[in-house]
Structures are given as C-alpha cells and as structure tokens.
C-alpha cells in the first residue's frame, strides 16, 4: 500500500463503467467544466487531482446528478453509465444515486443510531425482506466499511457519537449498504487524522474488488497510494488522464508535471 514503486503496479484493462463525452458544466454564467472526456473503468480506483477550484468535485457530483440539487447548475454533454445516458429524461435521478453512491468530504452520519444509519439505504430501497435480512445487510456493510469490530456492541448508539475516522467509515459502510455499482468519494480523508486516513485508504483498496471507485483528493500522495488511474484537472479542463504510475513518474503535459512537483497549485 504505502510503497511508491508505482511503475510496478499492475493495471489490468477492464470494462468501462462510466464514459463522459464532451461534458460541460455551468454554474449560472460560470463555465466550470470544459469539454471533459473520460472513461472510468470498472473495479478500479480512479483519482481526480488538481488545484482547488479546478472543477474536480463538480465533475464528480455530476456523475450521480448531485448537481441537480443546485438550482443554477447546468450540465451538457453525455455521461454514460453502462452505456446509458444518465441525463436522459427517462432516468430517475433517485434510482441513479442508488446505483452511484457517494461519500462526502465531511463525515455526515444521520442523527440516528449506527444501525439505522446503515439500514437507511436498504430500507428506502426495500432491499431487505425481513429484519434478519436487514441485520445481515447491515453487518456485511459494516464489515466492508472495516468498522464492524468497533461498533458491533453499540449498534443502537448514535452514529454522531463516533470519532471522525469512525464516522467516515460508517458513512462508507452506509453507502456500501445500498449495493451501489460505483462509489464516488469527495475528499473522504480531508477531515481525518493520518491514522484514520490510513484506515480509510486501506478500505478503498479493498472496495476495488467489488466497485468502481472514483476519489477526489487534494493529496497527491494519497492519489498515488490508492489509485490505479489518475485524472488531472486544471481550470475546468481535464489536462491529463492515464495510469497513476505514468502520471506521477512520466507526465505528458507540462502542467501536470508542474502540479505534481509542486510548482503550481
């Protein structure tokens, strides 16, 4: 995990899960994302890096139509999930978000018990047949969130009573419980200390077996540690997209090199 021998990292070519074509995002008159084309592979961790305000979070949020909740936001172009356009009028954004889960920058457990936090998604989507089924789903999600051992004795305690790192893993478990196909993570470790960060990163690596994970991060070390593919955004443009090892050791674009060596950003 923590070694930096990036060249040696094996990257298999896998199916394309999300394909973005000529995506433009506007906030009112502000053109926030310009002509982005990107293919996100299945069962892979893809990192979006770039300086603040470059549009990486905006692009991430447009992948599960979270931008719909912002009145002035407008998305053009096509984003295909398994070949289907998610901005098609036929698509129900609520259903889409069940398939494309999201973990936020700040841990945001609901004001409910730990159990109810995880059971939230399965309940609203009717994933459990009965109570025993739901218990099983919750346990499985908490195990995948690598937090089961810490909370199994206090599932009825409020989720807000956990520490920051535990809260974030709870939020990941909550997102996993709805059985999404893609997991979007918007700077999931920015509010965490190094130990909690390491735990979450380990978790992300494990999640790769089942999901396509897209992570926005400010930490280039983190991108290098957890991702197989990296996209570098700058001023709303996707500057470079490729295998993580190649981006960090041998970038094509001079702007990417400047950023990862700390000259801009």
């Amino acid at each position: 995990m923590n070694d930096m021998r990036l060249i040696d990292r094996a990257v298999d070519m896998k199916d394309i899960k999300i394909a973005a074509r000529d995506v433009q995002v506007y906030y009112g008159d502000n053109h926030a994302i310009k002509d982005v084309n990107v293919d996100i592979a299945d069962k892979t961790v893809t990192a979006f890096i770039g300086p603040s305000g470059c549009g990486k979070s905006t692009f991430l949020r447009s992948l599960n139509r979270m931008n719909d909740t912002i009145d002035i936001c407008r998305v053009e172009g096509n984003i295909l999930l398994d070949g289907e356009d998610i901005y098609d009028k036929q698509v129900d954004p609520v259903q889409l978000r069940a398939k494309v889960g999201m973990v936020f920058q700040k841990p945001n457990p609901f004001p409910k018990s730990i159990y109810d936090n995880v059971a939230y998604g399965p309940r609203i989507h009717g994933l459990a047949k009965n109570k025993a089924d739901l218990d099983e789903i919750v346990e499985k999600a908490l195990r995948r969130g690598a937090i089961w051992d810490e909370v199994k004795d206090r599932l009825d305690k409020p989720g807000t009573g956990l520490s920051g790192g535990q809260q974030q893993r709870l939020c990941i478990a909550r997102a996993v419980a709805t059985e999404p196909e893609v997991l979007l993570m918007d700077e999931p470790c920015s509010a965490l200390d190094p130990i909690a960060t390491a735990q979450v990163e380990e978790l992300i690596d494990e999640l790769r077996e089942n999901y396509s994970v897209v992570i926005v991060t400010h930490s280039m070390q983190q991108a290098a540690r957890v991702s197989q593919k990296t996209a570098f955004f700058h001023l709303g443009n996707l500057v470079e997209y490729g295998e993580t090892g190649q981006i960090f050791t041998n970038p094509v674009d001079p702007r990417t090199e400047s950023y990862i060596t700390g000259r801009i950003g």
Partner: peptide, 27 residues
C-alpha cells in the same frame, strides 16, 4: 440542519420527502 445531511441522504438515493421525514425532521 446542515446541508451535508441532506446531501448524504440524496447520495443514497432517497427522495426529497424521504430525506425530510427520516433525516431533516429528526435532526
């Protein structure tokens, strides 16, 4: 009630009224 709670609920595929009933009002 912080927007992050609403975002969290929408991010799990909840509708607006589900979010209000189960997250916003309890908070």
């Amino acid at each position: 009630v912080p927007q992050s709670l609403r975002d969290g609920s929408y991010g799990l595929g909840a509708t607006q009224s589900e979010t209000i009933k189960q997250v916003v009002l309890p908070a």
